[in-house]
Amino acid sequence: MSAQTLGVKSLGSRFKLSGGGSGILIALIVLIAALGLASPRFLSLGNLTDITRQAVFVAIIAFGATLVIAMRGIDLSVGSTLAFTGLIAADLMNRGFNPFASVAASLAAGTLIGIVNGVLVAKVKIADFIVTMAMMVMTRGLIMVYTEGIPLTGLSNPTFQMFGQGFVWLVPMPVLITIVTFLAIYFLLYQTRFGRYTLSIGSNPEAARLVGIRIDHIKITVYALTGFLAALSGVLLTSRLEAAMPEAGEGYELDVIAAVVMGGTSLAGGKASLLGTAAGAILMAVVRNGLNILNVNTFWHQVVIGAIILMAVCADKFGGRLKEA
């Protein structure tokens, strides 16, 4: 136990934690320890691999959503984008395109959806909630029109299957891709101008404008990045299931926001804890896994997640009152 707390500390100093970010890490470790005691199989390498593989789909999108929320924005379209782009990849593959080309097209489509969101928010100045909600229902509608509710299957290309099912050494490919994504976004957020500008916009939009930040460019880029990540998640899910499901990603928008908020990123913007977001995404997978293993009705999952969100937000409220100071 003490070794684990130490681990948090060194992680915390290496990676930036802000607000309730450290709270979620502690919650996660306590939960993992408790489940480890409750079921000896929980801590097996195989199960931990499963959990991370289950967490990646929400986690990847949540990394992008962390930037959106830190910028005081919101993106509800991610779940539909995931299904839509997964469908594009599957459809192109079935039409005989090279798997890399299909994946590239899918990622481009996700980016494009993000750009459209961004332009409508930043240039046309429509509320982000409305823009992305409209995009969410429109995209889902297009999927249903195109597939008539039938999944696209028969994705037997081994290269394509690598993305979601492969292993590099002991690490599952999707987990590896998620780690690389995490590091890249981490670098962007904390080490580059782009990250600074994103957080500045969330912290004080007017001040950000007056220090010469091109707010519209940054906003469009952040939404584009989120669209790209939703597509990446869509590709991984499609490859994992060897099928593009029309209903894929339904409800993801809320899971993603839950992961971000649990992780300590405030909806008021300005601060972001990417590590907290990763912990939030993993925590949700751990809760589901734990309930499955203990053979408890999984509808408790929603109750537990809701309670954790409330606790995280309360910790945020009573932990750091900087904004008012």
Binding site: R41, S44, N47, F57, L241, M245, N292, T298
Partner: peptide, 25 residues
Amino acid sequence: VAKQPAGWVRAQGLSVTENMLTAHP
């Protein structure tokens, strides 16, 4: 030995099966 809802959909069928296999290999 195990009985869990998986929401009629494939993605949940996958993750719930993984989790059940951990408990009941």
